[in-house]
Design a binder for these strands. Structure first.
Length: 573
DNA sequence: GCCGTTTTCGGCCCGACTGTTTTCAGTCG
């Protein structure tokens, strides 16, 4: 049975929760949490790596013990230590710790004093006012526990970056307009442009007499004020999103921005380097002894630590600190580097606009080329094109290219990869196209081996160029299908095929780790919006965000090239 | 439990806010 990294990470996290309740060494607990994070962000399953004979103890934060435990989970599906700990401590206590305001000490106190072992019992104890009687607890804590139990159900998921973007922007506007406010910036995973965001961390600088904190907690969209302090406040918006606001002195702005941008793992790695130079970094600055020697800007902070500026998107402790030390940071691709888009639909299949409308929108947005890639006939539900309709569309594209100046429309298709790996259209017509994107839209549940071979067989086709949305995942909705990404990438390299980074904010597929893997292999990636409407062209920026998180440079991206150069790259022999 | 240009033992980030305290513990980020 395949065991995925997510399951390994889950077991480590559960174990960490329970150990914490038992009062285990906090650093031991942290070691499990760090390991969970490391494993989850690997581009390949640990199971595969083990099968290939790789030594997992070489991974950062994984020693002999944890490597052995990963092996145990992969081989047995479960971890003996976790099972034992769950028996000693009751598995559901770990769930209680996820309630905001309830940590290991309080769970243990409630459990020991009242015998509470489940969420239902916790609610009953709170409703019977048993909790407020405990030492160290009171009415407010009891009320909070009840409130958080109710909120828990609809508050578990992280929010997609694209959904958070407009919320963050209107908050920024609101705060910028308040009297005395100088700088406003959203830090955290939002600034790192992570595909999903847990909460918003906003930093501001302002005059001492600015009413910004009161105006923040009084913002229209605020549903609940969790904290309201002088330098820090926290609210929950009607959308369910949590927002933290911090007021920082101007001399500390850079240090605070750096600190609150994270990630935590990255910050710790850099702080270690600082320690080696007898420096201390915190949100107030870089200190030598009691002297603040930097802090007003992020650049200053990096300079004092002796590192070049590391772009926020890279700050995940995935090798960027080592790369910075060696002065080998990538020069990340930018939105303005993109010259074209290689995946777009029209009304001929499931797009919302005509060929001409899509072409004009692309031209207006400054693109030099746009590939029209409607669905093929297998996707009958969206009237996918057969050979005849595709040829008609190709003629219309030729005519449009003669008429329109300033943009080139490429004749393409998003052809279905059928279950056996064959393509859904005749070889002849595929050979006449400028661009063939091949995608999977059916049979998501094949075994990993079959799914992988299906895709490789599709890439054997001499007209195949780019694998569309390579894992099929939909963020928060559908898991990736089982596929051996490393084999797929190696096969693509051998055949002269490429990967798509689908920039639809619901997809962002390839993910960041896969992009990094592609780059390491020297496999180029197309950043494509998969546009179904003229307005979708805007989504290219989400693709760029993800590409940057995946360390991609302009040269690693197919569509940073002029059409003439791209055409040569697409030529297979 | 991890890790090593202070190292194989003894560190591992630390400050703000809240609620419960009457000087601080717990939690969070």
């Amino acid at each position: 049975m395949p065991i995925h990294n997510k399951q390994v990470a889950e077991q480590f996290n559960r174990l960490a929760d329970l150990l914490e309740i038992q009062g285990a060494n906090t650093f031991r607990v942290r070691a499990y949490r760090n390991a969970a994070q490391t494993v989850e962000s690997l581009p390949r399953d640990a199971q595969e790596m083990l099968e290939d004979g790789e030594d997992l103890s070489e991974l950062p934060g994984i020693g002999d013990d944890l490597a052995g435990k990963i092996k145990e989970i992969v081989n047995n599906g479960e971890l003996t230590l976790l099972k034992e700990t769950e028996e000693e401590t009751t598995a559901e206590l770990g769930e209680m710790m996820k309630l905001p305001g309830v940590g290991p000490k309080r769970v243990k106190a409630i459990h020991d004093a009242l015998g509470v072992e489940s969420m239902d019992q916790l609610r009953a104890a709170a409703e019977n006012h048993e909790i407020r009687e405990l030492e160290g607890f009171g009415k407010k804590t009891e009320d909070m526990i009840l409130r958080e139990i109710d909120r828990r159900k609809d508050h578990t998921e992280r929010t997609k970056l694209s959904a958070v973007d407009p919320i963050a922007r209107s908050l920024e506007n609101h705060l910028s307009g308040i009297d005395g406010v100088k700088k406003v910036v959203v830090a955290g995973s939002y600034r790192r442009r992570k595909e999903t965001v847990g909460d918003l961390d906003i930093l501001i600088t302002c005059r001492n007499d600015s009413p910004v904190m009161d105006r923040f907690v009084g913002y229209d969209e605020v549903e609940e004020v969790v904290e309201h302090g002088k330098t820090r406040s926290m609210v929950i918006l009607q959308s369910g999103l949590q927002v933290d606001l911090r007021v920082v002195p101007e001399v500390c702005y850079g240090a605070a921005l750096y600190y609150f941008t994270g990630s935590k793992a990255h910050n710790i790695a850099v702080r270690r380097i600082a320690q080696g130079k007898k420096l201390k970094i915190n949100e107030y600055g870089v200190f030598r002894g009691d002297d603040r020697i930097a802090g007003a800007t992020e650049e200053e902070v990096f300079e004092e630590v002796g590192l070049p500026f590391i772009p926020p998107e890279l700050r995940e402790n995935r090798g960027e600190v080592e790369a910075a030390k060696a002065d080998k940071l990538p020069k990340l691709v930018r939105l303005e580097d993109l010259r074209g888009n290689l995946h777009a639909h029209t009304k001929d299949s499931d797009g919302k606009y005509t060929l001409r409308e899509m072409a004009e929108a692309a031209k207006k947005s400054g693109l030099e080329y746009l590939a029209i890639t409607d669905h093929s006939k297998a996707v009958a539900a969206v009237k996918g094109l057969d050979e005849k309709r595709l040829r008609q569309q190709m003629e219309r594209i030729d005519a449009l290219n003669d008429e329109l100046g300033g943009i080139r429309i490429l004749k393409g298709i998003e052809v279905d990869i059928l279950e056996d790996g064959s393509l859904d259209l005749d070889d002849d017509v595929l050979g006449e196209l400028d661009l063939v994107v091949g995608s999977i839209h059916s049979k998501f549940d094949l075994s990993k081996k079959k799914q992988t071979e299906r895709v490789i067989r599709a890439m054997d086709h001499p007209s195949f160029h780019i694998l569309g949305h390579p894992t099929g995942r939909l963020i928060n909705e559908r898991e990736a299908y089982e596929i051996d990404m490393e084999r797929i990438m190696d096969a693509a390299l051998e055949r002269g095929c490429y990967m798509e980074l689908n920039a639809q904010p619901d997809r962002l597929d390839l993910n960041d780790a896969h992009c990094k893997l592609a780059r390491e292999k020297g496999l180029k990636v197309a950043i494509s919006v998969d546009a179904h409407a003229t307005t979708d062209l805007e989504f290219l920026r989400f693709g760029i965000d993800q590409a940057r998180r995946g360390w991609l440079e302009a040269d690693d991206v197919l569509n940073t090239r002029k059409w003439g150069d791209l055409k040569r790259l697409l030529k297979r022999d």
